[in-house]
Write a protein that binds this DNA or RNA. Sequence first.
DNA 1: TATATATACTACATATATGTGGCAAATACT
DNA 2: AGTATTTGCCACATATATGTAGTATATATA
Lengths: 158, 158
Amino acid sequence: MINIKYFFKFAADILLFHGIFMKLTNTSEYALRILTYMAKDPGQLYTAKSLIEKLKISDKYLRRLMTTLSKEGFIYSIQGRDGGYSFKKQPNEIFLADVVNAVEGMDTYAGCVLGFEECSCENPCVMHSTWVKVREEFMSVFTGKTLSDLDFELAKRY
Amino acid sequence: MINIKYFFKFAADILLFHGIFMKLTNTSEYALRILTYMAKDPGQLYTAKSLIEKLKISDKYLRRLMTTLSKEGFIYSIQGRDGGYSFKKQPNEIFLADVVNAVEGMDTYAGCVLGFEECSCENPCVMHSTWVKVREEFMSVFTGKTLSDLDFELAKRY
DNA sequence: TATATATACTACATATATGTGGCAAATACT
DNA sequence: AGTATTTGCCACATATATGTAGTATATATA
């Protein structure tokens, strides 16, 4: 899930700055943060402890998420001493959309921006075409890129 | 605020359909639903009662929203018998981004898709450029269109 | 078998978004 | 002044997302 907010902000020099706030839910953020981190070195076995320390995600929340990601087939887990998590599917088989979908659940549908049930191309609301433009950009990016299609060389993080 | 979810859905013919769920918060949906409805006939005075019936928004929630929209300067309100709401700013002066921003509050900022505080073009996360593409599409559409730039002829709704 | 270390699960706690109830205040009309 | 109709406001109720606590279970090693 993604949250988007617009904002206005005064810079120090009194310049009016008109920007956007667009944010995944913490849950989706965490899932992508974890998997993109693991994708840098996909062969490794990662303990919850190491992920928590490295990625600043709260202990129990991360563990619950790992269980979800495991049940969804992205990773497998090994219990007991010397246990941990590693990839089950390869990173180049995992699309960004799949990750978001998995952790957010599938009990949703493509909705009208104004919340109308009956909105469609044949019977559009006043914002239909406007919204479709935004949605299609998001769709093409998130369904078109896998975990291994990201900027691992550019990013100095982790 | 906007919530986006991906979804998979089986059509009747067993075709696997891979789509997107992308949704404003109810609050933003309501605000846009109300203002786009009013923008079809901007000169009129609208009672809360008529808006509730027409737009299927719960009584008290709509009234609270109208007060917000009024305080934010989009509309003015007339109390008492024969009172109601009407535009203060003209619809062609109200950008979609302004509406979302007004009802969601301004205590936010443009964030990293993975939730990193320090993420920027100079110090990007692995998803930075990917996310910027999506965000800029949303930004250009919502800061580029006003309430009067919508498809009033096409939409049979209301 | 005992111990250390790891994941799995359940239930609860907190924060935020959303929705509701009741009453006060304003205004037109009689 | 009295009444009907309308907006304004406060406090609470509910739903969902997020975060935490405690305990059970699994496994490598000694």
